[in-house]
Amino acid sequence: MARIEVKSEITGTVWQVKAKPGEKVESGDTLIVIESMKMEIPVITEDPGTVKEIRVKEKDAVAEGQVVAVLDG
């Protein structure tokens, strides 16, 4: 099983955590929504898998390129 790291494309604040550990996700699913500069930007997984870890919680600050979730795919 491959370990997949999902990264935020932008710097901002976590607005919503959509996925939970243990949940099965498909490619294109939104795991987390980041708020930055008055926009909501989804963090989307490109690969299907099972959510192993969500590394952020609501209101956390995230940086561009930061790993916000880990999947087993």
């Binding site: 494309e9 932008i10 710097t11 901002g12 930055s36 500069m37 926009m39 930007i41």
Partner: peptide
């Protein structure tokens, strides 16, 4: 300039 995603810094 392409995705129009915010770019703070």
């Amino acid at each position: 300039p392409r995705s129009f995603h915010p770019s703070p810094g």
